[in-house]
């Protein structure tokens, strides 16, 4: 017993593996005049962080988010998810990683117009196929109800307001219980009231132990997040944490 305790004490505590890590990430769009979207990005995002990516238009905020979310591939450098390099993953492996570990919310809700909001939320669960049909519907119903949309389950996206649609998009992003939500200007197309509601929603997600990385123009909102990464011309200008 004593020996065990001694060994426990002597073992160095392993450094936590970052949830998402970018190492020297550069993305250049090929063309007659190649365009550099981001250059030499090094950053690590851990669990339970609330990160804002800010910067002027064209500074590479969204590009960085897409690279972190495996929607795009870096020209140089690599992105690691939970310590696993993604550069050599197959398209299927990247798709599965997005499906099971990452949730996306875009500026425009990007819901499937021909489906009810219940079906929209159930869609990622169907794609993952880890739950029974009734479980999927129950979880989709619970998620929508928790976001105040219990009365609209059978409606289609075009029958909802902008704020409601964005809440549906958040519910869809949460469907497979991802470790991180990546949000690209989630409040960009909303009025101030709806923006506040969506922000509170994202904050609640962080309070529940998940990580949220959000690209935003809104400095006031960014200041309320735990960490703010500011980009200028595709490079990190500052990375400040308030915690």
């Amino acid at each position: 017993m004593t020996e065990t305790r001694t060994s426990e004490i002597r073992e160095p505590k392993p450094a936590p593996v970052p949830l998402i890590e970018a190492r020297g990430v550069t993305r250049i769009l090929p063309g007659v005049v190649p365009t550099t979207l981001v250059r030499g990005i090094d950053l690590a995002i851990g669990d339970n962080e609330f990160v804002a990516i800010t910067g002027p238009s064209g500074s590479g905020k969204s590009s960085l988010l897409y690279l972190l979310g495996l929607l795009d591939l870096p020209t140089e450098g690599e992105v690691l998810i939970r310590g696993r390099a993604t550069a050599h993953m197959t398209e299927d492996e990247r798709a599965f990683t997005r499906l099971s570990m990452l949730g996306f919310v875009f500026q425009f809700h990007f819901l499937l117009q021909e489906f009810s909001i219940l079906d929209n939320v159930a869609l990622p669960m169907r794609a993952l196929g880890a739950r029974s049909e009734s479980d999927m519907r129950d979880r989709a119903r619970d998620l929508l109800s928790s976001l105040g949309l219990a009365d609209h389950l059978g409606k289609r996206p075009d029958q909802l307001s902008g704020g409601q649609r964005q809440r549906v998009a958040v519910a869809r992003a949460l469907a497979n219980e991802p470790a991180v939500i990546l949000a690209d200007e989630p409040t960009g197309s909303l009025d101030s009231k709806s923006s506040e509601q969506v922000f509170e929603l994202l904050k609640e997600i962080v309070d529940n132990g998940r990580t949220v990385v959000a690209v935003t123009h809104d400095i006031a909102l960014a200041e309320r997040m735990h960490r703010r990464i500011h980009l200028i011309d595709g490079e990190i200008d500052s990375d400040r944490s308030r915690r």
């Binding site: 398209e91 798709a95 997005r98 996306f104 875009f106 499937l112 869609l123 990622p124």
Partner: peptide
């Protein structure tokens, strides 16, 4: 095209 982008961003692979 937009729906396809959504589905792929959610994690549906090319085969699906």
């Amino acid at each position: 095209a937009r729906d396809i982008a959504i589905l792929k961003s959610l994690g549906l692979n090319e085969r699906t």
